[in-house]
Simulated scan of single mutants.
Amino acid sequence: MYPSAPHNQGAYTPEAHGGPVPASGVPHTPPTQAYAAGYIARNTPFKAPAVGMPWSTGLCHCCDDPANCVITCFCPCITFGQIAEIVNRGQTSCASRGAIYGLLGFTGFACFYSCFYRSKLRGQYDLEEAPCVDCLVHFCCETCALCQEYRELKMRGYDMGIGWEANMGRQNRGMTVPPSVGEGMTR
């Protein structure tokens, strides 16, 4: 099981510890057994996985933005295209990603495609993987997940209707508007 250490490094031998150990089916490990240097167990503290920041809105708060909720229910490829353009930082267009999503919708694989973008969004903004893993969220609640991602980007100051380039133009001119705080929230 473990490579034996040379005799000069204090390896365990039955002769050195009072003769052979009777066979019992249970490994015999005397308290003073020495292992080769690479096999010494170290006490390392357990590090819990890093938990990101919470989402700005919940998964089931679709009615917080009723217009987006209706659009996403009837044509999720539009919402997905808008999300993908912002997440990709303008490298791909809203129309191209929305078209791919729409074509994948006929095969049933659109949720797997969109879960990739949820993961990418979470990585960009250090968001927690909640309420469960990204693919499961998109598989079980596709429209709710898209609405939540849309609202998250909107809360971060993006105007989802104008695309990446126009948003960057606004930021460069200093015309960004900080996200508004809901009526019931206080500092």
Rank of each mutant, 00 (worst) to 15 (best):
P45W: 09
P45E: 13
P45R: 14
F46G: 03
F46A: 11
K47G: 00
K47T: 13
A48E: 13
A48K: 08
P49G: 02
P49K: 04
P49R: 06
V51S: 03
V51T: 09
V51I: 12
G52C: 00
G52L: 00
G52I: 01
G52Q: 00
G52T: 00
M53D: 10
M53H: 07
M53A: 07
M53L: 11
P54R: 09
W55P: 07
W55V: 08
S56M: 10
S56L: 11
S56N: 09
S56D: 09
T57W: 03
T57I: 07
T57D: 12
T57A: 11
T57G: 05
G58I: 02
G58A: 08
G58R: 02
L59M: 14
L59Y: 02
L59C: 10
L59F: 07
L59V: 11
C60I: 06
C60G: 10
C60M: 14
C60Y: 07
C60P: 01
H61K: 14
H61A: 15
H61N: 15
H61E: 15
C62G: 07
C63L: 13
C63T: 13
C63P: 00
D64N: 13
D65K: 02
D65M: 04
P66F: 01
P66K: 03
P66C: 03
P66R: 06
N68G: 11
N68W: 01
N68Y: 00
C69M: 09
V70D: 10
V70E: 12
V70C: 10
I71C: 04
T72E: 04
T72Q: 08
T72Y: 01
C73D: 10
C73W: 08
F74N: 14
F74S: 14
F74E: 14
F74A: 14
F74Q: 13
F74P: 02
F74V: 12
C75E: 12
P76N: 07
P76G: 06
C77S: 12
C77F: 03
C77H: 07
I78A: 04
I78M: 06
I78Q: 03
I78N: 05
T79I: 06
T79D: 07
T79S: 14
T79H: 06
T79N: 04
F80M: 12
F80K: 05
F80E: 02
G81Y: 00
G81P: 02
G81K: 01
G81H: 01
G81A: 03
Q82T: 11
Q82S: 13
I83L: 06
I83W: 03
I83N: 04
A84D: 08
A84P: 08
E85T: 09
E85V: 08
E85I: 11
E85R: 11
I86V: 14
V87M: 05
V87S: 06
V87N: 04
V87D: 06
V87E: 05
V87Q: 05
N88V: 11
N88A: 15
N88T: 15
N88R: 14
N88S: 15
N88D: 15
R89L: 14
R89A: 15
G90E: 10
G90I: 09
Q91Y: 13
Q91E: 15
Q91C: 14
